[in-house]
Every structure is written in C-alpha cells, then in structure tokens.
Design a protein around this nucleic acid. Sequence first.
DNA 1: TTGATATTTAATAAAAATATTAATTACAAA
DNA 2: TTTGTAATTAATATTTTTATTAAATATCAA
Lengths: 109, 109
Amino acid sequence: MESKKRLDHIFFALSDSRRRDILEELSEGKKTVGQLADNFDVTLGAISKHVKLLENADLIYKSKRGRTVYCHMNFDIWKEVAMYIGMHKRFWSNRLDELENYINGDDGA
Amino acid sequence: MESKKRLDHIFFALSDSRRRDILEELSEGKKTVGQLADNFDVTLGAISKHVKLLENADLIYKSKRGRTVYCHMNFDIWKEVAMYIGMHKRFWSNRLDELENYINGDDGA
DNA sequence: TTGATATTTAATAAAAATATTAATTACAAA
DNA sequence: TTTGTAATTAATATTTTTATTAAATATCAA
C-alpha cells in the first residue's frame, strides 16, 4: 500500500522532462540549486520546487554547506524503478507465445 | 525532442496506481473496459478515460469485436522504459549484476 | 424496429500542478 | 552589525487532471 504511493511519486517525478533533465545534470555530479537553475528557462523558485519534488520522490537528496545546497542523484532508487519495469519485461519474455498470438491476431479478439 | 514527450506520457501514465493496477490486470490477458471497471471503485466513464490515457502512452492497445472493446498490454513499450532506466546503469557500477538481472530479465525467475 | 448492452464523450466541478513575483530565512563576510 | 548571496516559501493565477452524471454512439438481439 505504501509502496504504491512511492511508485506514484517516482513515476510522477519522472513524467516531466524538465525534471528528467535535472536528473541528467546530477548524473554527472552534484550541483547547487542555483547552478541547476542557470541551465533552465524558468525561475530559481520553480527549480527549487522541482528539486523538492524530486527529493520527495527519493530520486535525489540534498547536502548543505553554508547557505549553499547541493543536490545529488540517489543511485539506490533506480533499483526500485528497474524492479517495477523488470517485472513487466520479464513477464513478456516469458510469454512470447502469447505475444505471438496477439501479433497474429488469433487471440480471439 | 519527440521522445521526450513520449517518455512524459509513459511515466505520467505509470504515476497513477489505478492505472498500474489496470496494467497488472492486462498482464494476465486481454480484458474489456467493462471488466476492468468492475474491479475498481470508480465509474465506467472514469476507467474509459484511464484506458484512453494508457492507450495514448502506448502502454496498451485496443481491439474491437462488435460493441465490445478489448484492452491488451503492449509488451513492446516496456523495452523503451527499460532503456531509459538502463541509461542510468553507470551510476550503479557496484550493483551492475543486480541491474543486469532486472533490466535484462534473465534473473532466473 | 424496438429495446438492451458496451463504450465514449460532453458538461461540470473539485483538486492538483506549475509558474511568477515578492517576501522571508539562513548564512557569509566586510 | 550591515550588506549581499543562496535558497525557500507565500500569494496568486493559470492550466491540467480526475471524477461524476447524463447524453450520445454503436452494436446486438428479439
């Protein structure tokens, strides 16, 4: 039940290409909120909110040094996402015959 | 640029647990819109819209027989999602084996 | 044709997401 | 302490999402 909401948040966070772009940037190393904002066409406040959403989805985490906030990719979370995807991918590779039925149109529908 | 929107749609579709539940049902085989609606606490109209959204994200497709509409899982789409997740492979360097298992689906299960 | 069934869509309303500007908090350094 | 910088938050407006009921469309079946 709880993991459902967790996946809700993760997938929703990933559903915005601006946020995925932020993740791409962070994949190269930590960046401050301000540095992230410089690369996008929206205000610092907007980026701050995107960052917060990504943080709530556990896709990233923050560390603070003085008044500067660094954002880091949370590597562990991808395991959870991959598990969900892998579940389905595994499913269809195990049922190739069924897939063929769909493709061939002789599945009754 | 176009694939960005594609991923937007896919991830957004996956961000709702009701829609993920629909996918779970379809992973067991085709179902009509009405059959899907029977299993949820919302109206048929609401399910019809969820189904349409899943269809627009290419996560499912429909086939029609008479007045009945069957919904089918689109197995191929998971490859695309897995590719995005797989892109982040390098961040797991120390968990590469696990990742390979999840993404490649050859985890022996 | 008439009437029932399966699904979609229109009209509507409520809740959520997103962006902006401006105010606020937190910290650094002169 | 005062001033300036980094980031967050509040107030606000706009757009999007989601659900409902009811009407419309399409098909079956007598």
